[in-house]
Amino acid sequence: MSDQNTFLLDGEEIAFTPGQTIMQAARAAGKYIPHLCWHPEFKPHGSCKLCTVKVNGRFASACTTAAAAGLEVENRTAELDDKRRTMLQLLFIEGNHFCPSCEKSGNCLLQATAYELEMLTPHFDHFYPDRPVDASHPDVMLDFNRCILCSLCVQASELVDKKCVFVMGGRGMKGRKIIINSESGRLADTDFSVDDRAASICPVGVILKKRVGFAVPYGQRTYDKAPVSIVETEAAK
């Protein structure tokens, strides 16, 4: 090791500053670790497990594990990408993800990550859960069919917007869900605004600004020109 504050990521030396997680240090060094629930603006949630890496031979979430000198971290290995692909498949079958007519297509982190990890089929039987659409708000629509429970909307609404419009609630595979913090349970009955940070934080197609739809043509969407691994590392520069 040439420097005390470095660790190895797939055999490559990565510098870090004390307090950084493996994810933060890798991103700062221009290295892509697949993730869904992690966002650079918010504290790590560690729920999607897509950023699972092997740290000195043991599985750990890159977004919640502190970088430390001398660690040997495996990231884009066949073994880990296989597991990530399976986790993605589970996310796809747990919700109702219909990419062909989803306006988030091309801008969706879940879809882009599935392309990155070469997920070709859902593999497992679909759950086809019965999830409602909340279109009550005049400017924003919520389509919970696509929710992956990343909790970014919860954090953005609470920490940035100071509104607590979204709350994670329920228990179990069918019960766990995002709840709207109003007596009626409808977005229209909250003080949510289309200008809130939470309105633009969703990595998938749950929180959508109304009447935008497919205004951006093919070729100009976020992931049309480069895969997510390139887009992410470019964004970190």
Binding site: P100, S101, C102, E103, V133, A135, M141, L208, K210, R211, V212, G213, F214
Partner: peptide, 10 residues
């Protein structure tokens, strides 16, 4: 139940 702007694509 789908939003109207989605229909031409769906």
């Amino acid at each position: 139940g789908r939003p109207y702007w989605e229909v031409p694509v769906m």
